[in-house]
Amino acid sequence: MKKLLNDPADVVVEALAGMAAAHPDHLRVDLDHKLVLRAGAPVSGKVALVSGGGSGHEPLHGGFVGRGMLDAACAGEVFTSPVPDQILAATTAVDGGAGVLHIVKNYTGDVMNFEMAAELAAESGVQVEAVVTDDDVAVQDSLFTAGRRGVGVTVLLEKIVGAAAEEGQDLAACAELARRVNAQGRSMGIALTSCTVPAAGKPTFELADDEMEIGIGIHGEPGRSTEKLAPARDVAARLVEPVVSDLGLERGESVIAFVNGMGGTPLLELYVMYGEVARLLEEAGITVARSLVGNYITSLEMAGCSVTLLRVDEEMVRLWDAPVDTPGLRWGG
């Protein structure tokens, strides 16, 4: 596997330094703690949003640091959660006195490390609330798994709750909104290829040229089943149906429809997929209030995509439309 690297061991820190060089108006980085911080943070009186996770999902999370979204992102090693010291450093660096909301994707390591950090932050007097995203319908939510994974909804949540924090909503309101967004969103993904962790040097799983992996996560972990590759319209149906059914979406309801690329699939194909998703939703009588298409929560160079649907109310749409100014997502005044 060919990669543009110097030393695989330095990939995270070098990428962070590159981000700082590319986006000096939006963010600064703390290379010791591997943090991306909003330029000008802490913002006095504003609830601060801190997220983080393993690297390899860019632009998530560092690319979403800036006005209207995150105040800080903690970068772990590739596909490995950040550690409590990092999360604590981010939390204290961006606390503007109104408390800090931790946005955590539901993976065993992320949850444990954020929990330990929240315990330490509480001891140093910072008010912390945590919300865990778990929107992946590919995983059975049962006593026999670690619970559903946090995937696409995390992006939508960071945008919507970021807008709420920006307009001055307090910590309890932001946390309640975040839980509401998570509860109303579901995702499902497929992979056409595996991906290669730089330090490992070879693909995480094997997939033949004519196969696809249904129900993948974002860490190159294999999915629920390996199947023969099918036309985009059939793949779209395999993704949309379980999401619609799990959400209990009914005719007349509105959603934000999000087709996310895993990093190695061209936009050309993502738009083919979005077209199929939009057609399926129209047939089901579901209104697309807003859409998002592109590579936002990736899995290194994995080819494939995920579909996220978020059932929205007027408040969520208003917050979605509010201005955002980050390297990865930017619109409005």
């Binding site: 959660s81 065993t108 390591g109």
Partner: peptide, 12 residues
């Protein structure tokens, strides 16, 4: 270990 391993193995 907590501050260098990461993942679930670090805290555990």
């Amino acid at each position: 270990l907590v501050s260098t391993v990461g993942g679930a193995s670090g805290p555990l």
